Simulated assay, not measured.
Amino acid sequence: MNLPTSPTPADSRVLPAAHPLQSGRTSASPLVTTYQGTRGPVTPVWMMRQAGRSLPEYRALRVGTDMLDACLDPAMASEITLQPVRRHGVDAGIFFSDIVVPIKLAGVDVSIVAGKGPVLPHPVRTADDVRNLPTLDEAALAPISEAVALTVDALGDIPLIGFAGAPFTLAAYLVEGGPSKDHIAARTMMHSDPESWQALMRWTATVTGAFLRAQILAGASAAQLFDSWAGALSLADYTAKVAPASALALARVHGLEYTAPDAASRTVPIVHFGVGTGELLGAMHDVGADVMGVDYRIPLDEASRRLGGTVPLQGNIDPAFLAAPWPVLEAHVLDVLERGKAAPAHVLNLGHGVPPDTDPAVITRLVAFVHQVAADAASSLPAPTPAA
C-alpha cells in the first residue's frame, strides 16, 4: 500500500503568533515539555475520556442534546472539555468530540446510538461505495475550530490536546456499519479488494487529517491519533495495509513549528495510541509519532524496551483499578510511575478511557496523589550546597 504523502505547504508550517505554543502560554507546560522528551519534576497527568460521561455536570448539560449535536455546538463542546480540568486539576484538556465527526461533516450518514456507538445505515463495502464517498469541504470544520478557540482562551496556560480517529478505525466503522468484535468485513475488504481498500484508507486519512489539523491551527498544543481497532490486525497487515494511511493523516500536522522559550525551533508533539497494540508499537511509532500511548495490557518498561528506550510514553493505568479500594489503586499508580521511568519521559494516563460509572472523586484524588508524589520526591532531595 503506497499512499503518497501530502506535506503541509512550507509557508503554513509555522504556527501563528497567537498560538499558545508560539506565544509561550503552553510551550513550557509540564505536558508539552514531557511530550518533547524532557522529564521534569512533575509527571503530568490527564485521562482519556476525562471529559464526558462520568461527570454529573456533563450529563446535566447533555440532557436533550444528541451526542453529535453536542460535538458540533462550539459553546457546549468547549464547556464539556473544560469541566474535568476545573474539577480534577489535570495537566491538560482533551478536546471533547468524536472520531466520526469529520465523517459526518463530510456528508456521510452516521449517528451515535447510546450503549452501542457509531452506526452507519449504509456500510461502505464495494468499489462504487468508496467512489461515492463525499469530499470533505474543510470549511465545514468551522465549528471545530471555534470550539477549540473558545476552549484555549479559557484554559490559559493549560494545554489542550487535539485528537482524531486513525484511518483504520474510521474505515472499520464505515465497512462494518457500526462496532464489531473482529472487524471481519473490513479485514476481508483489505485483502479481497485491495484497490478499493486503498482508496477508502486514503479517504479516511484525508478527512481525519483535516479534522486534526483544524484543531491544532485553532490552538491545540498537541495532537493524538487514536486507533481503537488496530489491535485486530497482524503486524504484517498493519505495516502494509494501514500504516501508510496513518502517516498520510499525520502529514497534515507533522512538522508544524513554533519557537520554544529557549529559542529552539520545535514542532507540535504527536501522540499515537491504540487499543491492544502492544505488538504494533514500533510500527505505530514509525508513522510519524513523537510519543506512544500504551494501553494497560503491557507494562510501560516493556513498552519502552520494544521501542528501543528512546520514545516518551503515555499511560497506562488499568481503568478497572478506578473502582478498586484506594490502597489497591495507589499501589497500581506507583507501579505505573516506577515503570514509566524506563522511558525518556512519561505522561500518566489511563490505558483506555474513564469508565462511565467511575466516581469522579476517585479521579480528582488520583490526580492530586500524582502531583503530591512529585512534591514529596522534590522535598526529599538534599539541599544544594552553597557556592563557595
Rank of each mutant, 00 (worst) to 15 (best):
D137G: 14
R87D: 07
M47V: 08
S78Q: 13
V124N: 08
V130M: 03
V294K: 05
M190K: 01
N316E: 04
A240E: 11
P382D: 11
A114Y: 00
A264W: 02
D128E: 11
N349C: 06
A28V: 10
G231F: 07
S196N: 10
D153R: 14
S29I: 08
Q224H: 07
W46K: 01
P118W: 03
A361T: 14
L150V: 05
V347P: 00
V253R: 00
F273G: 04
T8H: 00
A245V: 00
W46C: 01
A247V: 03
S97C: 11
R306V: 10
A263R: 15
L307M: 14
A75L: 08
G115C: 00
L248D: 07
H19M: 01
Y238W: 07
A342M: 11
D91A: 05
A260C: 04
P4E: 09
I184V: 15
T358C: 14
A147R: 06
A375Q: 11
A139T: 15
A303K: 10
V275K: 07
A378I: 01
P84C: 06
L155H: 08
V175Q: 10
A236E: 14
Q50S: 06
V354Q: 09
P9T: 05
T188W: 12
A361D: 14
A127L: 06
V328R: 09
P327M: 10
M47L: 14
G40C: 13
S221F: 05
S12C: 05
A324W: 03
Q36C: 14
E257F: 00
V373C: 15
P7K: 08
F211C: 02
V119F: 02
A230L: 02
T5Q: 15
V63K: 13
A243G: 07
L256S: 03
V291R: 02
G209P: 01
L136I: 08
P194Q: 03
Q36V: 12
A247E: 09
G293R: 03
P344W: 01
A387R: 05
H285M: 02
R39P: 13
F321I: 01
A17R: 12
D128P: 00
A139G: 15
E302R: 09
F96Y: 15
L141E: 11
G288K: 05
L133H: 15
G37N: 09
V152Y: 02
Y35C: 12
Q22M: 12
D69N: 04
P4M: 07
L350W: 11
L329K: 09
A303G: 07
P360E: 04
D69W: 05
L348S: 05
T65G: 03
L72S: 04
G219Y: 06
A220D: 05
A142P: 02
E79M: 07
I103S: 06
D193R: 10
D295C: 13
E257K: 00
S234F: 01
R266W: 10
D73H: 12
D193F: 10
V175Y: 06
L120N: 04
V367C: 08
T126G: 00
A260S: 12
T188A: 15
P159L: 03
E176L: 09
R213K: 03
P382L: 11
P312H: 09
D129H: 15
L15P: 09
P159G: 08
G274F: 04
G178H: 12
V32N: 12
V268T: 13
A214K: 08
P123V: 04
E257G: 01
R53W: 02
Q83L: 15
V268R: 06
L141H: 10
A263M: 14
A60E: 15
V90S: 02
A361R: 13
L300F: 06
